[in-house]
Each structure stands twice: as C-alpha cells, then as structure tokens.
Design a protein around this nucleic acid. Sequence first.
DNA 1: TTGAAAGCGGTACCAG
DNA 2: CTGGTACCGCTTTCAA
Lengths: 343, 343
Amino acid sequence: MNLKELASKLGLSPTTVSRALNGYPEVNEATRARVMAAAKRHNYRPNTRAIRLATGRAMAVGHVIPVATRHEIVNPVFADFIAGAGESYSRNGYDMVLSVVPDDAEEEAYRDLRSRGAVDGVILHAPRMDDPRIPLLHEVGLPFVVHGRATGAGLPYSWVDVNNRRAFQRATEFLLDLGHTRIGLVNGLEFMDFAIRRRTGFADALAARGLSIDPDLCASDEMTEVAGFRAASAMLDLPAPPTAFLVASMISGMGVRRAIESRGLRMGRDVSVIIHDDDLSYMKNGEDVPIFTATRSSVREAGRIAAEMLMLRIAQPDAPPETRLLEAELIIGQSTGPAPRNG
Amino acid sequence: MNLKELASKLGLSPTTVSRALNGYPEVNEATRARVMAAAKRHNYRPNTRAIRLATGRAMAVGHVIPVATRHEIVNPVFADFIAGAGESYSRNGYDMVLSVVPDDAEEEAYRDLRSRGAVDGVILHAPRMDDPRIPLLHEVGLPFVVHGRATGAGLPYSWVDVNNRRAFQRATEFLLDLGHTRIGLVNGLEFMDFAIRRRTGFADALAARGLSIDPDLCASDEMTEVAGFRAASAMLDLPAPPTAFLVASMISGMGVRRAIESRGLRMGRDVSVIIHDDDLSYMKNGEDVPIFTATRSSVREAGRIAAEMLMLRIAQPDAPPETRLLEAELIIGQSTGPAPRNG
DNA sequence: TTGAAAGCGGTACCAG
DNA sequence: CTGGTACCGCTTTCAA
C-alpha cells in the first residue's frame, strides 16, 4: 500500500493525503480523520526510501566503530551508550546505522556516510587528544556530537561526558580516608581523553593530601582482562605493594581480581579495590556489594542525551555547540575493604 | 557532485555514466576508463537514498534489540556477534541498522522495518522455544537468519549457531575427568534455546558416567553478576556443596567468582570453575589461564557467517534454508583446578 | 555503444 | 481547503 493507492481509494489526491498524514494545518479536519482512519485500516506506512530522497534527509544517524586490534565494541560501556542512544532514536523516528570498519578506514567511513547521504549526523566515540576526526567532521560538514571530550581540538563541538576526573578523585579520596597511602592505578590507555582525566582526578586527590604519584603504582594499558592482570601482578610483586587499587573498567577489574586471588589475597579483606564502570548498581538493595563502583547507568543516560543533542543539531546545524557533564553515581559497598594492614 | 553533474562534465548522458560505473558490459572500455577516472577525481559517490528508491532495495540489514528489564545489548557476546556481522556488511556495501525498542514493541518493529522498506532482511537474536518471531517474519515476508535455533518452530529457517550442547558436554566431561561428581550448573534462562541446549550437554555428560542431575546444583536465571552470585552462594551453602562450577557467561561468572571468594575459597584451588563465553583466548600464550573457557571468538565468526547468509538470502529469497553449526574453541588453563578435596 | 524518458514513492510549491 | 506538477538522484527499459 503506497500513497497513491491510498489516495485513490479515498478519492483524494496524494497531496492531500500526504498533508493530512503529516499534520499540515490547511487540511479539513474531517478529511484528516478520514485519511488517518484509512491509513490505519490499510496499515499504510510511508516508504522510508522515498521520504529520504524527497526530503533530502536520511532520518538516520551513524555510529562508526573502528575494529581491529582494539575491539571497542566489546566494551560493555560502549554497548550501554548505544542502548541509550538507540532508545532516543527509535522514539524520534530515526534509524541508527552502525558502521563497523577496519580502524585505518575510519576517516573514509565518515566521508562515505556523508557523500552517500546515508546519515544526517554521527556520534563520535572514544575521542583522543587532538583527535583528527573533529576537524575532519567539520570539513565534511557532518553534524556530530562527541561522547567524551577531545582536549586540544581547536574547533568547537558539542559533547556529552561523564565526569571522569571527579569520579576518580572521589574514589581516591575514599581510599585515602580508609587510610591507604599506596594505591595502585590501573588505567586505560592514556592517549584516550577519558583516561587522562581519570588520572588527573587520581593525582589531584593524592596531591590534596600531600601525596605524589608513584610511577610504579600507575599502569596505563588497554582495558582488557590480561592487561589488568599484568598490571596488578607487577604492582603486587613490588617490595612495597599497594594496599588498594583503583581500576578503570569492569574488564580490567577482572584481571585485577585474578592477580589478587592468585597471590592468596582476598579482595575486600587484604586489598581494597574500586572498579570504575562496573555495573553493580542493581545490587544496591540488600545485596553485599563488595566493591565501590561508579556505575554504568550514567553512560546509558549519556547515550540518550547525546542522541537528543545530535537530532537537535541536525535540525539546527548553526546552533552553538552544547555540552553536558554528567556525574557518575558512586556506590559504596559494605565490604569495600578495610584500612591497610601495613599501610 | 551527482550523476547528472558528472555526466555533463564528461559530455555524456547520465545513463552511460551510470552504466560505466556499475560495470555494465555494453560500455566502451575507453569511455568507462574516462568515467571511472572522472568519478575518482571528483570524488563522486552515488547517493544512497536515490539508489534505494530506484532499485527498491534498502541495501541495509536490521538487528532489532529489545530492551527493558533484560538488557540483551550489554551482553558482550551479543556485541561480538554484531562486530562480526558488521564487518561483513561493510565489505558488501550494506548498512547495518540497529533498532533498540521496548521489548513489548519488538513485533511492531519488524512490521515497521518491513513496510517502511528500511531494510532488506533481519538477523533474529536470542531465539526462544516456539519463538513467535519466526512465523511473524515469514508472514511479513522479511528474509531473515537466526542466530541460534528455535526448537519447536514449525517453519523452516536459516540459522547459525555455536554448538552449545557439545561445548557444555565437553566442559562437563573435563570436570568429571578431574574427579568431580558434584558440579554446579549456573545456566541462563531455560526458555532460551541456547540455555536448554547447554543444560542438555551437561546432563548428557553426567548420564554417560551414570550420574544424574541434582536439582539443587542447577540454577537457571538471567546472566547477570547478581544472579550468578546468588546461584553460586546458594549452592556453596548446601550441606554438600559442589566442588566445581560450570557457568554460562562471563558476567554471571563474575558473580560466581565473588561467591567463592567471599567464602574464603579460591577458584582453581578449592573449586574448579569453567566459564563459557569468557574471552581469555588472548591469554593462551604464556599467560596463566586460571579457568577453562569456551571462547567468544566463535561468536564473532558466527556473526560474519550469519551476515553473509542473510545477504545471500536477500539476493535469492527462494533458496532453501541454510544452516551452520560452529564448534566453540575450548581452552584449558594450567590452573583450572584440582580434583575435589572431598569429592 | 549511447541517449531519451519513464519511473521509484514521496514532498512541496503554485494555482485554483 | 484541495489538486496538479515538478522535482529528489539514480536505474532501467526502449530506441536509435
């Protein structure tokens, strides 16, 4: 059932039917009602392809996922963001297009999406310092919103971010309050903007207590289980091992757990551990939450917000950039860990 | 730069340019070369929206992700599948559209994708027994491939699946070989097809040794950390606790780990644990792999294969259904766990 | 081997 | 308030 058929069935012109369906004011309300009813009855849905060509808008938003050595997509946090954004798109009649491309083809992917007219805008993931994708997107004229911030990007842009610095600062303060002075930081790759901010929060909290960073207690690597395992293992085998850990992700946190366990130590008894981005929020009520976490739920919220900001930018490309900083929810478990035994 | 502009710049008709670019044989090779060169030089890319309308094909594939209480998308396995499929799509000029919808709107989402002409086919995720989506997709005439199998579906369909039964059977056999007789199964929800198959594999291995399933040692719940924690806790607190666990997912595996730890036990020393779908494949070389795993890499492969099968079905809708069963790769760690102390 | 012209299924401008 | 018509940018007969 297409517009023309529906129109002839109603004895109206396609024009009028189109107007009635799209809520144009100049249509007689009686006519509109008739049209609406017929559309519902015949289960008419306008052809997306035709709308797209006629209006020149794709009614679609792109997310480019570079994939190769590093597998961004397996990051659960990324999935949460996508889920949040996806809900917003669905509610607003937008489609979400995911492009999974080799990571050396990312730039080409953006150019392609743009010149093919496949999407009206994109979300930029995992920004790095001086991220080259920001000037690129400006150049090709594709509206975008960044999930995170790109320090050093000369050009203005819209972003939504979780306050990583603050989250790590508070987590560090919490450990310091417990009496820990040797805290191991198991961070992500520090050319990623969020990892830099996390480190800054960590350093700030230490500095506020007159402590400085011990390079032996700082690791920066991919957020995988094996990297977490290696980093924590190395620190635990130091002459003066840390009494607490602050870990960047749920996945590297698994490696840290293993390193601790495999030395006969116990998390929450011998070593305090705070894992960021772990999702134990659902355990808040009545469950024993063993570790202090910054929950992933704010990431889902970030996805929703980013999507809405992007759709707005698409509608008004010349609006000034907008920014949103979300605070991570922090959860303190009963058995987060004691004061250090020999701290 | 569009087709008409490119054509007039070349002094040719749009028809000829289109034919040259699309590899039609009737074009003079000299002309074709000239056209190709000009297209490259001007960075011409045909407008996707126009192609879609003209050809009647969307050149896009849909993945519908229902979301509400259960959050399928945060399942890392799902993300791997998407990554694998996405690569295939990109290579073949297809777009992947993700629809995140409330889980009571899934049926509507398929109808909508179909009648709007937004996609040419879909991948069906997480099939259940007698899954109603299979007759639905047949009814609306949307080509599809199932990731997994739907026992009880009367109609034929194409699918790609990992051999869950075999994976769990082998894992169970491995534990039995170590001397374990009380093995706890921490399974997913057993209305999911894959969970049923996993349980069957577990049961088969036990039966082959003359053992039967102890209902107290079988849990079936969502594959979340808290569910894993609860299930393992309950079993460990039995008068005769299990000496080994077989766990359905990386995430519930985290809960099982916690339950073990919090009782002062150690994985691999006091309790043997096998986690399915955990991704420790990258730890194979030289690293200490503490647990035996069925790796996720086969899921990525499944995504690739499913995507290719779907694109084929779209091209030839009347081809007979095709099926592929992949074997999960099994990895045995050095410290998987000893024989039971009191087994 | 090339081109003219008629769609694909809508939108939107201009008349009436 | 309603209808005719010219697109949107490409594909695809049909003629030349």
